[in-house]
């Protein structure tokens, strides 16, 4: 997966995050959107990295990582319980990274410890947030995108 496509992936995740958890949306709409986004990300990974999909097992959980990033970014538009779901979304991302990494370790790949540590640090730090102002929200989003692109 080229760095360009990697960056494009996080833009795609950001774009999709706009549609989730809109005010007055039914759980059906949100659920269908989640499933649809997963499908979209799968198709993106499949066509974006077609040549290396068979040889690079690290791409196996790429759509799921994109989905986790999308969920993290989508918490910006939540009206209720924002801190709680923020932490939960980051824990989901941490989960996917950690256990995906362990599975890949057994197939001979190094675990991306820096990425896992970064996400874990962000998740832990978010539990201390007392009030998420607009600036703090923006800062969080930038941090997530930075972790995605640089780690």
């Amino acid at each position: 997966m080229t760095p360009l496509l990697n960056a494009f992936a996080c833009l795609l995740a950001l774009a999709c995050a706009l549609f989730l958890w809109r005010k007055g949306s039914s759980p059906y709409r949100n659920g269908a959107l989640l499933a649809g986004f997963l499908l979209l990300f799968s198709v993106f990974t499949y066509f974006g990295a077609a040549e290396s999909l068979a040889t690079d097992p690290a791409l196996e959980h790429y759509p799921f990582r994109m989905l986790a990033l999308c969920l993290c970014l989508s918490t910006a538009s939540l009206p209720l319980y924002r801190r709680r779901y923020l932490v939960l979304a980051q824990v989901l991302w941490l989960w996917i990274e950690l256990f995906g990494g362990i599975a890949l370790y057994y197939r001979g790949f190094d675990v991306a410890w820096t990425r896992i540590a970064a996400v874990a640090g962000l998740a832990f730090g978010s539990t201390f947030l007392s009030r998420i102002s607009r600036e703090m929200e923006f800062c969080l989003m930038v941090l997530w995108l930075a972790v995605w692109v640089f780690f």
Binding site: P57, A58, E60, H61, P63, F64, W95, I96, F99, G100, G101, A103, L104, R107
Partner: peptide
């Protein structure tokens, strides 16, 4: 059984 995404 290949699947780093198996947990989810």
């Amino acid at each position: 059984w290949r699947g780093a995404f198996f947990p989810v």
